[in-house]
Structure formats: C-alpha cells, structure tokens
Design a protein around this nucleic acid. Structure first.
Lengths: 202, 202, 202, 202
DNA sequence: TTATAACCGAGACGGTACGTCTAGTCTTTGT
DNA sequence: ACAAAGACTAGACGTACCGTCTCGGTTATAA
C-alpha cells in the first residue's frame, strides 16, 4: 500500500472521477498521518504527498475530517461485528476487537482520535462523526437484542445504556492515551456492566 | 465580570507578573470562547480582546491549551467535591454536579471539549491534561476509599474502575454533544456501576 | 496612477502570476513609501494597503529591498541615458537628469536611499543593489567611450574613475540630504573632474 | 580591551553616571557589532551582552545610532588629521588614513556603514550624523585653507567642493563594499581633483 | 544624620513586524 | 466534464525587538 510511486503522469482521464487519484489521496493521507501524527495532518500535506491539487481533494471531501473518516473506514470495514453466542462473549469481543484492540494499532487509534478532536470544533466534522456513531451504535445494539431473544436479559433492559458504558470506557482510554494498558481490563469492564444490569443471567 | 473597561494604562508594574494583565487575558479568553466557540479561539484574538501583546501571553502560557485549561480551572475551583455520607450519593453528586452538570453551562463544556481536542494533537496539551486528570482522579478515588472505610464496599474493590466508568460516561456524553440529554440517566449509570461492583451493599 | 480602487474581486486567475496583483502591490508599496517614508515601509503595511496576502508578496519578492528596487526601477525606466554630442554635456545631463534631478522628486530619492540603507545590513539587498549598480555603471561608461571615439579624451583614460567620481558625488549628496542644494553645483563638479582628466580637450 | 570580566556587582554608584557601566555598554556594543554585524545589532543584544538594563542604555543614548556613533568615535579619536606640508600630501593622507584606510578595518567600516544606513530612516540618526559630518568637514576644510595660505591654491577656490569630492568618493566605495579595492586609487583620485581645481600649482 | 534623588540591574508591559504555514477559492490548461 | 497545477486573499502561528515603565536596591550629596 501507499506506494507513492505513481509520481508522474497521473493526469485527468476525462470527464469522470479518476479512481487512481482517490486511491493516491487516501494513501497519502494515511502516510501523512502515520508519519506526522494528527498535528502534521493538513490538506496541503496530503496534496503534496499525493501529487494532487488541493481542489481535487476538496471536490471529493468537503473537509479534512471527511477525509480522515474515509481513511478510518478503509480499515474498519475489514472487521466484522462478533457473534459468539453469549452477550458477555459478544461484548468482550466488541470491546477487545472492534474498539480497543482495533485502536491499539497506532494508526487507527491516531486517526480516530483526530476525528473526535476535529468534531469538537468543526460543525461538519461533528455531523459526520454523529452519523458514523449512530450507525455503529445501531449495529452494536443488535448484540443486546440478540441477548434479549435468547433470554439472557429481560426485554425491558436499557440496551443503549449498556452499549454507552462500554463504548464510553473505550473512548476515554483512547483519548487519554491508555489504550494499551486498558486492554487487560476488558473482562472486568464487561462483567461490571452486565452484573449491574437488572435481570442479567450469565 | 470581564468588564474590559480598564482600557487605558495597564502597563508594566516592574520586573514581575502583572496580575491585572493576567486577569484581563483570562477574561478575554473566556469572552472569546463564549462568543466564537472553540473554532474562533486563537492567541491573536485573545490578545486583541485583552489589549495585550502576544508575547505577554506566550510569556505565561506556553500554548493555547494551557490558557484554556486556566480558564477552565477558574470555574472549576468554585465547586467542591461532594460528601453525602453514601457512595451512591457521592457518585451521583460527582457525576451530576462536577461533571455533566458543570459542563451543561455551555462555556465550561465548550472549554473542556476544546482542551480534550487539543490534547489529541499537541504534546504539551496532552501533558497538561494528563496532569490535571491525575489530580482530579486522585480526589475522586477518595470517594470510594471513604466507602471502603464505611464498609459499603470490600477493601479489595477496584476503585479506579468505578471512577473510570463514571468519568468515561461523562466524557463520552460531552464529546458527542449529549450532555443535556444524559443528565436524566445519572442515577441509572451510578446504579449500574455499583450493582456491578462485587460485594457492594447499598 | 495608483488608484487603489479595484478593491474587490482580485482573485487568482489560474496557475500563473496575476498582473493585477503585482500592479496593486507595487502601487501600494509606492503609496506606503510616499506617505510613511522609509521608516514606515514594511511588508505588512504594503500587504494591508494592497489588500494582498503576505505570502503573495513573499512569493514574488524575496525581501523588502527587492520590492523597493522594483518600485524604483518602475520610475527609472522612464528616463533615457543622454547623448548631447559632448562628454561635458553628457555628464552634466547624466548628473542633472539621471541622478540628482531624478532623486529630487522626493519619492525617488527616498526609495533609493532606502535601498542603499538596506543593502548595508541585508546580504540579499547588497547583491540586488550591486547587480543594479553594475548595469547602470556599464551604461554610464559608454558616455566616456563615445568621447574617446570622438577624440575628446585619450584612449588610455580611466573611464571608471570619471564615472565613479560623478556618481559618488551624487550618492553623497543624496545620503546627507543635500540633493536640492547640490543641483547648482553640477557644472562645477563635472568641470573639475574633466579638467582633472589628463588629455581632456573641451 | 573589552574583557567583559567585571560580570558581577556593577551596581549604582550613587546619583551619577557609572563609568564602568558606560564602558561595559560600549564594549558590548562593539562586540555585538563585531560578531553579528549590522543586522545583529540591537539594543536588546547590547543590554544582554553588557548585563545592563535597557533603560540604562536609553538613559544615556537616545537611540541605537547614537550608540553606534559613540562606538565609532571611540576609534576615530585615535587618529589625528594630517599635516604633511602640501595639499596633495594632506589629501592623500586624509583619504588613505582617515577614510578608506580607517574603514578597511572591518569593524570601523561596518559601524560607519550602519550609521549611514540608520540615518536614512531615523530622524535622530540623521541629525546626529549631520552634526558629526559638519564637525569633520570643518576640520577637513582646514587642509585647504592652509594650502591657500601657502599659495598652493587661489583664495577664491571652492574648498568645500574639493573636500566633498574626496569624501564622496570614499563613502561610495564604503557603501558598495569596495573599500579594499579602492585604496590603490587614492592618488589618482586626489590628483584628478587637484588638477581640476583652477589655479592649483603642485 | 538622615533624607532624597538619581543611578543601577532586571524584566514585564503593549505593540509592530517578521517570515512561514495552512485554509479554502478560483482559473487556466490539458486530457 | 474533470484533473492537475498553482496563484490568490486571509489570517494565525510563534519570535525578536522596540521603547516605556516600575520595581527593589545602592550610594553620594543636601538638609
């Protein structure tokens, strides 16, 4: 990946989106993030790296957050939501694999930190992140719904609270830079939340 | 407050820090944040507003995060940690009063969001935030220690986990912009965490 | 000239230098010099006046000296080297018209004084001035060469010395602020230098 | 000289100028000029170097030009005006010893270039330089007056023109950085000027 | 003998300008 | 129609000096 060697002669291919450019830009964005971290990430830097014009980037991504989010989802799409048969197993896998474990790879964590940070000051970024979040949360709630169907938890349990607590824990660890240290506590977190859920039966 | 009316004659008072200037700068920083939000916050803008020279700001605050954190702590110092006699009461008050309720005032929340965001890209900011966090966490752990002394929870309970879960929930709600909506869930969150804590007796 | 009235809508005209911007910047530089003199001249002030971004100025002029020299040459190009038929006439015209008389217009003199001053401390400015000087001197030497061809002076006369003495006199008067007073002495200076040149015949 | 070793304990000596401080400041100014050239010369730098407070400098020298001029005259005073018995000898010595030869020492030339440059933009500097110049010119005119008394030149000769031409030549060479190269032309310059003076008899 | 006045070092103050960086927009040229 | 390129306005960044001011302290001279 991110070969950056198509330096020469990536010109227009006529009146349609050039996939090679999009790839090159995403590769460059990833490389810039990998090398300079969040602070070094700028549209300028990506354009330089990709040997692309800034307007080409702005044409397809309205702002840097959208671009970062695209880089992020390129990774994310590789990982599927778990289905272990028990709610505890699902949540442990969710936290361990989709959240903390995924972010432990420095780049993924870096990108997501950047996206969250950006969303605090940029309205467009906040919207993009909320849309992304809503989708993820919807899919996470399914884990609890399945548990309800299996009778592991009562029908009237607050599924959103369970997910929120788990996701919130992961975010917090990410944002204070303690992802690696916190991975040992995954089971304790899930157990605490489940024990605290009224009517839960292991 | 922030009258900004001592416009004239705030000169040097000798080879030492001029408290009037510091006040004026913090007032201006607060006003800029209040009016322009995080995105509009810049050292330039604060200097203009405070009728202060940029170097005066840089002399005392190494970066904008330090300045924002100072604005934040000016508010924070007003609120005391709770002591209600029960762990549940303490945690509810902590979450309700020190975290979510405190941030609900738009400015406090705005400032803290900005600080967290800044800490994701700036090393100095990260350090400053971590120092601040460590101190706050230390003081929050006391709530659990008192509960241990009272026999509400066993001696071997993981106090840090309890605090982390509560704080993490608050951060997450802050960062996704759901502070107001989440205040109704304060008791549910605390109850879930406490019920999930082995050996807890109400 | 220097109308400064195209205030609005001077955007980019594509991937090439925008002549309108260059004109506006030179006009602004001239206006700033006219109003504030050398001391008030700064890139910042020119950018403000021209409604141009600082980087646009730095893109095309490496330093303020280069910009001032450009303002200067815009005037200079208007005046042609003299050809009166006699060396005395040429030198008088040169001193009277190209040097002192040209500088008497307050702005031209001001600009050239600034350029010379700048060249004393800035390496780039020194280089720029030397290049300009070398060109001017070359063209001034032609006056003497023509006189040699006419037999007014011997072939072995030190042409550079003649030009140097005349130019030096003008510089000195400029730099001590005596341009106006010295214009009455033009003929005396030229006569002294020519009488002192061995083999000169009027 | 300029030992800079009285580092400690140079306090006030009562309600009068402390000569040690003045010496230290002049030494520091000289050292700063020697090391950083004109561009590196600033009141801040001198104060740092001299371990003196800025107000102490401003108390005794109204601006940097006055300070530079003081550094310059500290050297200058060492050299006496010549008296060789002939006007030609005097002028050659004047040009060779007081002007070009004096400036050839890099520091003296550097300082004087700086003073001249400063005088182009700063009113105070211009005044100071003019005062200095007037004094020097007065003393140089004496050379010609003595020649008149000896009958070398007629009484009605324009003494100022002779001095101006010689001084102007030296300035020009200084300002274009050709001091060293021009020293071989001293006699040619003086001879040209004198031959061009009506009624001059060697 | 005691004030007092001017000096000294130090360094903070409000400012201005520096030269660099990035944002996001615009237009031309070339596929 | 779209890509590439790069210029454009705009403005923040962090630094260096400017010249002024007040401080705390020192010391010679005037009262």
């Amino acid at each position: 990946m991110e070969t950056e060697t198509e330096d020469l002669s990536r010109r227009s291919i006529g009146a349609r989106r050039n996939p090679a450019s999009q790839e090159a830009i995403l590769d460059a964005a990833e490389a810039v993030l990998r090398e300079g971290g969040i602070a070094g990430f700028s549209i300028e830097a990506v354009a330089r790296r990709a040997r692309a014009g800034k307007p080409t980037i702005y044409r397809w991504w309205p702002n840097r957050t959208a671009l970062m989010l695209d880089v992020y989802t390129r990774f994310k799409n590789a990982r599927a939501f778990p289905d272990t048969g028990t709610l505890r197993g699902d949540l442990v896998a969710f936290l361990d694999n989709q959240l903390l474990g995924f972010w432990k790879d420095s780049l993924c964590g870096t990108v997501y930190r950047a996206v969250i940070a950006e969303a605090q000051s940029d309205a467009g970024a906040e919207e993009a992140l909320q849309a992304y979040q809503a989708d993820r949360k919807q899919r996470a709630l399914v884990l609890v719904e399945r548990a309800k169907a299996r009778g592991e938890v009562p029908q009237d349990v607050d599924a959103a609270l369970i997910i929120d607590l788990v996701v919130a824990y992961a975010w917090h660890q990410l944002l204070v830079g303690h992802v690696a240290q916190s991975m040992g506590k995954v089971e304790a977190v899930v157990d605490t939340v489940l024990r605290g859920t009224p009517g839960y039966r292991a």
